[in-house]
Computed example of a mutant assay.
Amino acid sequence: MSGVNKNIVILISGSGSNMAAIVKTAQKHHWREQFGARVAAVISNKAQAKGLEFAHEQGIATAVLDHKAFANREAFDAELMTAIDRHAPALVVLAGFMRILTPGFVQHYAGRLINIHPSLLPAFTGLNTHQRAIDMGCKFAGVTVHRVTAELDHGDILDQAVVPVLPGDTAQTLAARALTQEHIIYPRTVERLLGEIASSIKG
């Protein structure tokens, strides 16, 4: 497939480890050649987000949009949409982006917006998922890739991975075990969606 016409924009707030996993998979699996796709930009709401360094090193465009500089959530999301839309994204990927998005933002990217959540949805929506799983006595926990809808952590499930909850686990040890699975299933989901987009264009 010649040329690049499927841009991916990734939103981060911190280390960007899932973003890095997606970028590395894009390189290893030749998404540019296979799908005409690339990670076009990484955008953060925090200037100190370490993931920006990795993206810059990879030659990926980066941008910082400090949510604290805006009067309200709607104003921030409007400016964020402008920054994202400069890249005409086929997919917008939330990778540790710690902001609750407005319904208008979600609607704007309907069908193109995905997120990874550190639980086996529909269990444990929201925050502190690993500690809550431990407190409830769960034997298994996991991670879920899902489409983003206006209702928090309720969109269609695209992929999941299960990890055991071991005796003596803390929220930190369980989170670390789950994160290794996030780095597997998130790039895998993005790749599958790119394939579906490519097939629909051919069809």
Rank of each mutant, 00 (worst) to 15 (best):
R99D: 00
S44M: 14
S200V: 00
F54D: 02
K50Y: 13
A198R: 06
L166N: 13
P103L: 05
D85G: 08
Q131I: 08
K202T: 15
H117R: 01
N72W: 03
A41L: 08
I157A: 12
I201N: 08
G111F: 03
E191F: 05
H130Y: 09
I134D: 11
D169F: 03
I201S: 08
L80S: 11
A75F: 04
T82P: 01
W31G: 02
P118N: 07
A26V: 05
A26R: 14
G3D: 06
V23D: 10
G14R: 02
R86L: 15
A20N: 11
I197V: 03
A95I: 01
I185M: 02
N128C: 04
A37M: 12
V92D: 00
R86T: 02
P89H: 14
H87P: 02
K28D: 15
R192Q: 14
G36V: 05
A61N: 12
L120T: 07
L120S: 04
A63I: 00
H56D: 11
G16Q: 09
I197F: 15
T180A: 12
D169S: 03
E57M: 09
P164T: 02
A69F: 00
I100C: 08
K46H: 14
N72S: 09
L65I: 11
F70Q: 01
N18Y: 08
I134M: 11
A175F: 05
A75W: 04
N72F: 03
H30W: 05
I157H: 14
I157Q: 14
Q34S: 10
A150Y: 03
E57V: 06
F124N: 14
A176E: 11
A95H: 14
P89S: 15
G96N: 06
